[in-house]
Simulated assay, not measured.
Amino acid sequence: MNGPEVLDIGREGFFVLIKMLTPVMVVGLGVGLIVALFQALTQIQEMTLVFVPKILAIFITLMLVLPFMGQALATYMNQIMALVIQGQG
């Protein structure tokens, strides 16, 4: 296995990681912005107010996208194992 093949495997790994983390990060960002806007409008400056809604939203998102995340990771692992079986790894 030469350098470009290793870089292709690494690049694919990063794409799988980004695909898996994007929904969770977007929901966390969205909930954080909504709570921050609510705090700014009501002038409630409680620092812990952000954590509970964000944790709940991220937990619900993880439960919804966990099958997708598992499928993406399993597909990547099958590709890696196919390369190992072929003797290229």
Rank of each mutant, 00 (worst) to 15 (best):
N2Q: 11
G3I: 14
P4Q: 08
E5K: 08
E5L: 14
G10W: 01
G10F: 08
E12Y: 07
F14W: 11
V16Y: 00
V16G: 01
L17P: 00
M20D: 07
M20F: 09
L21W: 07
L21Q: 10
P23A: 06
V26L: 13
V26Y: 03
V26G: 05
G28Y: 01
G30W: 06
G32W: 01
G32P: 03
L33H: 05
I34P: 02
I34N: 03
A36T: 12
A36L: 10
Q39A: 02
L41T: 12
L41A: 12
T42D: 02
T42N: 01
T42A: 02
Q43C: 02
I44Y: 05
I44W: 04
E46N: 05
E46C: 00
M47S: 15
M47T: 14
T48K: 03
T48C: 01
V50G: 03
V50H: 11
V52H: 01
V52G: 04
K54V: 12
I55V: 15
I55W: 09
I55S: 10
I55G: 08
I58Y: 04
T61W: 01
M63R: 11
V65E: 00
V65Y: 07
L66N: 12
M69A: 13
G70H: 02
G70M: 08
Q71H: 10
Q71I: 06
L73D: 00
L73T: 01
Y76K: 06
M77L: 14
M77C: 09
N78A: 13
I80F: 09
M81F: 15
M81C: 07
M81T: 12
M81H: 10
M81V: 13
A82T: 12
A82D: 15
A82S: 14
A82P: 04
A82I: 05
V84C: 08
I85A: 15
I85L: 10
I85F: 07
Q86K: 15
G87L: 09
Q88V: 14
Q88G: 08
